[in-house]
């Protein structure tokens, strides 16, 4: 993308808001954007990673889900839910191999794309990007560890509560109220895929919480009405305070 593109300024702003790219200076980001091409993908685009791993992508708008599934049972587990500023696939960037992951766009998305070798070279050439990558990777690993622990250690109610809390930024001005980010308008089936459950169970749990006044859900919009009570259901009191998209 050229600097005179009408999309350049918003692309730069998106990267500056990303945990991975925020610490890089404008000149470096401009160089990186200049090496990328701009793409849009339609909603519900479903791709095995074998088809995308040769290019490095940075999401600019919309959401992408990375998941794995069992073809025999049809069950799906969402590994990552990516939002603006998130790259994929980091694993392929690191080891140069495809991974058994399914990619699905949940919205119409726009993204930057460049060949994986160029992204890797950029990583070698710019230690500051390398430095920013390490904590980002750490956060991703912690997210995967959290998912594994949730699946092994908590029941469905706690897992769903923990999922919602991970996507809430507590705001003192809103007291016990909060609006989850990224997962807000997801279907109950998609929420179930994120906690290793099924749609009917998630639906029943949300209805139950709604009756208890813990959440308000209508037309796919989810509002937390009693944050502290939800934290109790999560079986751990501390709320997540660091902003993260996963």
């Amino acid at each position: 993308m050229k600097p005179d593109s009408p999309y350049f300024a918003e692309t730069l702003n998106c990267l500056k808001s990303s945990p991975l790219f925020a610490s890089l200076d404008d000149a470096l980001l401009t160089d990186m954007i200049g090496r990328c091409r701009r793409e849009t993908w339609k909603r519900r685009r479903l791709l095995p990673m074998e088809e995308t791993w040769r290019r490095f992508h940075i999401l600019l708008s919309g959401r992408v889900r990375l998941s794995r599934s069992n073809e025999e049972t049809g069950r799906v587990i969402t590994l990552f839910l990516l939002g603006p500023g998130d790259p994929f696939c980091l694993f392929s960037l690191l080891d140069g191999k495809p991974h058994e992951v399914m990619l699905e766009t949940l919205d119409d998305v726009s993204l930057l794309s460049l060949p994986m070798e160029q992204a890797r070279q950029w990583l070698y050439d710019h230690p500051e990007f390398n430095r920013a990558l390490l904590p980002y990777l750490g956060e991703k690993m912690a997210s995967l560890a959290g998912l594994a622990a949730d699946l092994a250690l908590h029941d469905t109610e706690a897992r769903l509560a923990r999922l919602i809390l991970r996507h809430v930024d507590p705001s003192p001005s809103r007291g016990d109220h909060a609006t989850p980010r990224l997962i807000n308008d997801l279907s109950h089936e998609s929420l179930a895929d994120m906690i290793g459950s099924v749609r009917v169970v998630v639906n029943r749990q949300l209805q139950h919480w709604k009756q208890e006044g813990i959440i308000d859900a209508h037309r796919g919009h989810l509002e937390v009405e009693a944050l502290q009570e939800l934290a109790k259901r999560a079986e751990e009191l501390p709320l997540k305070t660091t902003p993260t998209s996963h």
């Binding site: 999309y7 091409r37 701009r38 339609k42």
Partner: peptide, 17 residues
């Protein structure tokens, strides 16, 4: 896209379904 990138386009994008 690669061919058009050699020209004088002010904006260039790929749209995939």
């Amino acid at each position: 896209h690669d061919q058009m990138a050699r020209g004088r386009a002010t904006d260039l994008a790929i749209h995939l379904g």
